[in-house]
């Protein structure tokens, strides 16, 4: 279970309305490499992870990703909460406005809705941990791209924090992969599926 805490993991205080920036950042809410996708990926994969510590890591990182989703949503919300119709039109936010007004809805920057098709839960620890390593790198690239485009320091500070977390998570998933490999046959890591053929685990 989860208990809610009335605080963001990293403070967000944006004073300047900017629907254009909101439209870019919303991708990290509902886009292919976004925080919602990250959280669902890890929280789905953890149940069948054969190494207990790896299941714990997926729970902890999956939980942190929920907090990151909240940071992104707070940013989109603050960037649009005092939005005028003129700003929506000029900032290219008019199409979004028609369907959602200024409410939060998980979509990618280009308007594609959030979908579970963006992530995998494959039932093989080696495969899933490689997916997780790649996911952290993809999210980092999105933050790199956002940091190139956005110059408001109030927006950049939380983005820099989120980018830094992707690198930390990458390292931890790498270590989790090493821990999983310790339980396998180093002569042939692909001799069996560690999540399905558990009897072979060391």
């Amino acid at each position: 279970m989860w208990l809610y805490e009335k605080a963001l993991e990293f403070p967000v205080k944006i004073t300047k309305t900017c629907p254009k920036t909101a439209q870019m950042i919303i991708s990290q809410y509902g886009g292919p490499d976004g925080e919602l996708s990250a959280s669902m990926r890890y929280l789905s994969q953890r149940y069948t992870m054969p190494v207990k510590e790896v299941g714990c890591l997926l729970t902890d990182i999956g939980t942190e990703e929920l907090a990151h989703m909240e940071i992104i949503c707070a940013m989109v919300y603050q960037l649009t909460k005092n939005l005028t119709i003129e700003q929506a039109k000029e900032g290219g936010f008019d199409a979004y406005y028609i369907d959602h007004t200024t409410a939060l809805w998980p979509q990618a920057a280009a308007g594609l809705p959030f979908t579970a098709i963006e992530f995998q839960s494959k039932g093989d620890a080696i495969t899933d941990l490689h997916e997780d390593l790649a996911a952290e790198q993809k999210a980092r690239t999105v933050y790199d791209n956002l940091l190139r485009m956005i110059d408001d320091p109030e927006v950049r500070e939380p983005l820099k924090f989120l980018r830094a977390r992707e690198i930390v998570h990458f390292q931890r998933f790498g270590e989790a992969l090493e821990r999983t490999k310790d339980r396998l046959d180093s002569k042939n890591y692909y001799y069996f599926n560690p999540e399905f053929d558990k009897k072979f685990l060391k």
Partner: peptide
């Protein structure tokens, strides 16, 4: 602020330095 308690894991993007707020 840096996003990690470990110095070793802090790997900023060059753009962060160029556009230092």
């Amino acid at each position: 602020v840096c996003g990690s308690i470990f110095q070793e894991l802090r790997k900023p993007f060059f753009i962060e330095e160029q556009m230092k707020s």
